[in-house]
Design a protein around this nucleic acid. Structure first.
Lengths: 293, 293
DNA sequence: TCCATTGTCTGACTCTAGTCAAAGAGTATC
DNA sequence: GATACTCTTTGACTAGAGTCAGACAATGGA
């Protein structure tokens, strides 16, 4: 990576942390330690299980407990045994807590506005546009791809979303019963493999392989959540899947797809897949592709 | 400011602090508290007076002293009485300190690169371009304008830069002796006023008024440092000067300028100045402008 | 029923990043 | 030479943010 590029990034980091960091830390305190504020914020209007809260913020159990006690003593939060498991406690905001959270929300808005405030109208528009671009691209680089157990909640959620989208986009809807089955529990070694992409612990995409010894690997269940489309996640997933296929000893990857999935088809073509004769009788397929690894 | 704009800024803040902040704080530690690292960095290859160091980082005297002791005990820094004033101590890096600082530099580079690393080539280019834009505009919003004593080092530096630039840009060079004098020490109340713009405590621009009771205010010494041009600082300075002129009771502002200063002329025109007959015999002037406040 | 596991709470501790006041050493000014 | 002032150091203190181990209560299986 060339020096000028790195220098740009370093300049950016410096200016932005100076400007954004300083504001955030000083103004959002509201006389309360920042840790408590973060907690108050994350509890959200509907309450959360303390366990999830801890996991989401990466807090030590003891520390989290103490922070909650402190928020409780300010009457901003109540913590009560959850159901059905009474060990997992649930934190909820009180009316006062919700009011305080609303106040924080307003403050954050004000803070954001104060970043733009010293600028001319046209400069503001340019800044916001550039911020959107930076944010999108950084978000893209925060996506992680991991091998998942198809029984995981996140994995199942992705596959549900995938089916739901097929139902919307296929001309005649989509009924999994008519499609060639790739039973979900086969998508783990040794018969298959499932990758799930996460962004900030939220699942945002998936892709799977069907592995059968001596036969080409089949690519299945490629899905990218609408909120992260256009960031190259599809291509990244595809590359990862191919890597796993090669590692499993395959020399060919195959897939079939429906003509309505135009961006997927474009992706396959630019990734080196070439269209081949139908190699199965999938009811919903119009195109069959193959790539030698 | 509309909701979508504010939401964009908030999204940006969140993603960027998560991505940049986390990296910065964890990786740049090198087993040393961050405060010490900052100090090490700021001392720089040539050493600094402890007093300046403290002022630059905004540190408490006691705290700074302790940090320096700690760096000294690691043999990264030596602090010795300065000359000529032996109260003002001077901090210098040892060879080990310079090596360590170099290491930090390399780490920062790596960190910057790691932000780009997960992206495709074309996405990288877009990210860097957007970062440059954000950085420039945020830098613009960090500029502060204050009334300065013309005897201040920063003020004198700006005016020197201004003369130097005139020397370069005027077709026949510039000799202050031939120009109508605006003796520098007149640029303070009640005979005048000098504004200096700072960016991170560095002077980056200036502008002055000559005030004479019962006569139009004269605008002088408008200069913007090349590194912040194109960010609207000139217009901002001009507005501030007009504000001060009005506050001093003036109803008219006048100025003369050289034809080679095209962007300044454009600025005056769009700011409501209209060209008038020559009202003085300034040797270097080709245009005279006036604005009623 | 017993027992390992999970989730939470508490007390005791650490480290970082400060602040504040007093005092010493040097310098400037009368 | 006395005195005021500046720069720095030192000691004593604080708050925030977090770690770690032990205790205890629910839960899930064998």
């Amino acid at each position: 990576m060339d020096t000028e590029t790195v220098a740009s990034v370093r300049r950016f980091n410096r200016t932005v942390t100076e400007r954004v960091g300083a504001l955030d830390e000083s103004y959002l305190g509201r006389g309360r330690p920042l840790g408590e504020t973060r907690l108050l914020w994350e509890i959200g209007p509907d309450g959360v299980d303390v366990r999830d809260l801890r996991r989401r913020l990466g807090l030590d159990a003891g520390y989290a407990s103490r922070l909650l006690r402190s928020l409780e003593s300010e009457r901003l939060v109540v913590v009560e045994p959850g159901s059905p498991d009474r060990r997992v406690r649930r934190a909820r905001l009180t009316a006062k807590g919700r009011a305080e959270r609303g106040e924080l929300d307003r403050l954050s808005d004000g803070l954001a506005a104060s970043l733009l405030e010293p600028l001319e109208q046209s400069q503001r528009a340019r800044l916001v546009a550039a911020m959107d671009e930076v944010e999108r691209l950084m978000r893209a680089s925060l996506v992680t791809i991991t091998v998942a157990d198809p029984a995981d909640a996140d994995a199942r959620w992705c596959i549900e979303q995938y089916f739901a989208e097929l139902g919307e986009r296929f001309e005649d809807g989509f009924d999994p019963a008519i499609s060639i089955a790739a039973p979900i529990d086969e998508l783990k070694p040794p018969t298959g493999l499932l990758l799930v992409a996460h962004l900030r612990r939220q699942p945002v995409g998936c892709g799977a392989l069907k592995l059968r010894p001596g036969r080409p690997v089949e690519l299945k269940r490629m899905w990218v959540s609408p909120e992260v489309r256009g960031l190259g996640l599809g291509r990244k997933l595809l590359r990862e899947l191919e890597r796993h296929a090669a590692a499993a000893g395959a020399d060919t990857v195959r897939l079939e797809t429906n003509r309505s999935l135009t961006e997927a088809i474009a992706l396959y073509r630019t990734a080196g897949y070439r269209e081949v004769e139908a190699f199965n009788s999938e009811a919903y397929a119009h195109h069959w592709f193959e790539k030698r690894l």
